[in-house]
Amino acid sequence: MSHHHLSGLQVSSLSDTLNFQTFNSINCNGRLVDLSVPKIMGILNLTPDSFSDGGKFNTEKSALEQTHKMLTEGAEIIDIGPQSTRPHAEFLSAEEEINRIGSMISLIKREFPEVLISLDTFYAETVRFGFNEGIDIINDISGGHYDDKMFDTAAETKLPYILMHVNPSYETMHDKIKFADIVLSINQYFSEKTNELLNKGVKDIILDPGFGFGKTVEDQMKMIDEVKYFGFGKFPLLIGISRKSFIYKPLGKSALDINEETQKLHLKVLQQGAKILRVHDVAEAKKTVDLFMSKRV
């Protein structure tokens, strides 16, 4: 092999390293978070009508207790959601979201300074409020569709932005669309939106293919099998399948009765490179991540 060829190899491997830097870490408010070990994101619903928590964690005291429990069980990110996005949930304005969050973010940060907080909202105004309160990550289920100021606000805060695939409007969020090729369609969407985000100056993007949002059971099973193709390996992937109906409905089970099936699917997506699992049951997901890590070595 000629010397010239070798130097060419070195150059290409260097540019590959640069391309995949996002993979190794994300920058949360100046804190580099290493993703070489997959992270668990625990769900903290602040919604009185949330379908699975039944509003048990509504008060500050129980929200702090739930956060403590999830952190002890192995979560490193806590995802705070003031608004339920399940089918037929009540629709909140940004102002109502901000009122519902109250001082929850700063309370959690004071109590658990090491925690990373992601804020689950599709409003730029709620993001600005959260940023001032100390959030670390923006988790927008709408891909910037429901608020045209979202991408600019993400760029201003310099926080990592979770880009989710979803139908283009709040009203159509849960309309089941049959895609000719689900993975191709999601990748076209990711490609377009990540270009837009990068052009606006958003540095850290995490991709979420949007399980549970307007997709058929068959398509979602195909997505599980083809997780490795999402985003062409350029960005870290977040997978949120916890208590989603595409798992429990075909089995004739309830949302709370599918742990074993869920963990099998979690393992499958980790083996394909998923970096963040968004879950209700942290302890069980932690066992799966540990199992994955022990097999990987």
Rank of each mutant, 00 (worst) to 15 (best):
H4I: 11
S7I: 12
V11A: 09
S12C: 08
L14V: 15
D16M: 12
D16H: 15
D16Q: 14
N19E: 08
F20A: 11
F20P: 00
S25K: 15
I26L: 04
L32Q: 14
V33A: 07
D34N: 14
L35V: 03
V37P: 00
P38S: 05
G55W: 02
K56Y: 03
K56Q: 04
K56N: 05
T59V: 01
E60L: 13
K61T: 14
S62Q: 12
S62C: 10
L64V: 05
L64C: 06
E65M: 09
Q66C: 07
T67S: 09
T67Y: 05
T67G: 02
H68E: 10
T72R: 14
G74W: 10
I77N: 04
I80K: 09
G81D: 03
S84K: 13
R86T: 13
P87C: 03
P87N: 05
E90N: 14
E95Y: 15
E96I: 13
I98F: 06
N99R: 15
N99Q: 15
R100L: 10
G102E: 12
S103H: 11
M104H: 11
I105C: 13
I105A: 12
L107M: 12
K109A: 08
R110N: 10
R110H: 04
R110P: 00
F112L: 05
S118R: 04
D120L: 07
T121K: 01
F129V: 10
G134D: 01
G143C: 04
G143M: 02
Y146A: 08
D147T: 12
D147C: 08
M150K: 14
F151R: 03
F151Y: 00
D152H: 13
L159D: 11
L159K: 10
L159W: 11
L159H: 13
Y161R: 13
I162R: 04
S169V: 11
H174Y: 03
K176R: 03
K176S: 02
I177A: 02
F179P: 03
D181Q: 11
I182R: 06
L184S: 06
I186Q: 08
T194F: 02
E196Y: 12
E196R: 13
G201P: 05
K203I: 13
K203P: 09
I206Y: 11
L207T: 04
F211G: 02
G212Q: 09
F213S: 08
F213P: 06
G214C: 07
K215F: 02
E218R: 07
D219A: 01
Q220F: 06
K222E: 15
M223C: 02
E226K: 15
I239E: 00
G240R: 14
S242W: 05
R243I: 07
P250W: 07
S254A: 15
I258A: 06
N259T: 15
N259L: 14
Q263I: 03
Q263F: 00
L265V: 08
L267I: 11
K268E: 05
V269E: 06
V269F: 02
L270R: 09
Q272W: 03
Q272D: 08
Q272T: 05
Q272A: 04
A274T: 09
K275N: 11
L277Y: 06
L277E: 10
R278C: 00
R278T: 00
V282G: 12
A285D: 00
A285R: 06
K286A: 05
K286G: 07
D290V: 10
M293I: 14
M293L: 14
